[in-house]
Write a protein that binds this DNA or RNA. Structure first.
Lengths: 155, 155
DNA sequence: GATAATGGAAGGTCAAAGAAAGTCAATAAC
DNA sequence: GTTATTGACTTTCTTTGACCTTCCATTATC
């Protein structure tokens, strides 16, 4: 008896393959279809469609809510995926973040204006009055979130 | 699953685009047209045509009453100075920050890519596990820092 | 004729109900 | 002992309805 999670994963992958790498679905609908608890869907998304595996999830609650699954284009973005998966990690200093932004600018991944916005966001002064390990951890989240934004917006 | 609110928003936007940025309508008439409760119109105005998104609402009750929707048209630099000096302050919610970014995009102050970077930066998930007043205060710093970056790079 | 009540025609407010998705800890399966 | 599954509870967003306020025109009162 194949595991439910695997069946749901396959199902979603089949839908993704028929799409342009982006897909919208309703959590409850899918749970109904597989006759499982709605939170099962979250489990599958968390374990099988994580950023590490090259996916990005957006969602919205309330009436007309949805879950959007976006498959990232890994081949085209080796460097970005390296940053997300390995380089940035749980903490990053301002200097290291600035170096990465500078590098992205030089490689033509971002424009000069975009580099300035990113640099403004990861300044130490933005997270004042917090212990530096927390600062660095927020900064890591910031970098990863902005990178994810850049990665997902081309589709 | 088209949301009613979105349909009404689109409808109003279509009317606005055919006008000179100002539009008068009757609440009950519009509610009749969409076969919804009149207060639904207020909800759409409050959530989609807020001041943060660049709109201003005037209205009048009684016989011959009306709702007037005005698209604000401020000079870009003035608008950013207003944001920095008055609007953002020490704290700002994710929703309000998103509305402002949406507004800046609509005005052409930032590109779509830039708007996505900014939106990624001010997400709640970036500052997880902190009390919400601290979240909002970091977010205010973020917004101000990014705006300063945009402002200074043009001079 | 001037003023005061009145009724209908708007729009406004707010809380409750409804419609989704998220979280997390307990349990089950392997 | 790790991975799956479930369910109770939470949060967010939307929709509705009951009740309130304001404005105008008409009628009643002095």
């Amino acid at each position: 008896m194949a595991r439910l999670s695997d069946m749901i994963e396959d199902f979603i992958n089949a839908l993704l393959n028929e799409s342009d790498g982006q897909l919208e679905l309703q959590r409850n609908e899918l749970a109904d279809y597989f006759e499982c608890a709605p939170s099962q869907i979250n489990y599958v998304l968390a374990t099988r469609f994580s950023v590490d595996r090259g996916y990005y999830i957006e969602s919205r609650r309330g009436g007309g809510g949805y879950i959007r699954i976006i498959r990232l284009d890994i081949d085209d973005d080796d460097y970005m995926m390296y940053l997300l998966r390995e380089r940035i990690g749980n903490r990053i200093s301002q200097q290291a973040a600035e170096d990465i932004i500078y590098h992205m600018l030089n490689k033509g991944i971002i424009t000069r204006r975009e580099s300035i916005i990113m640099k403004s966001a990861i300044q130490d002064k933005v997270v004042t009055a917090l212990p530096s390990n927390i600062k660095d951890s927020i900064r890591a989240n910031l970098m990863k979130s902005m990178l994810m934004g850049i990665l997902t917006m081309r589709s």
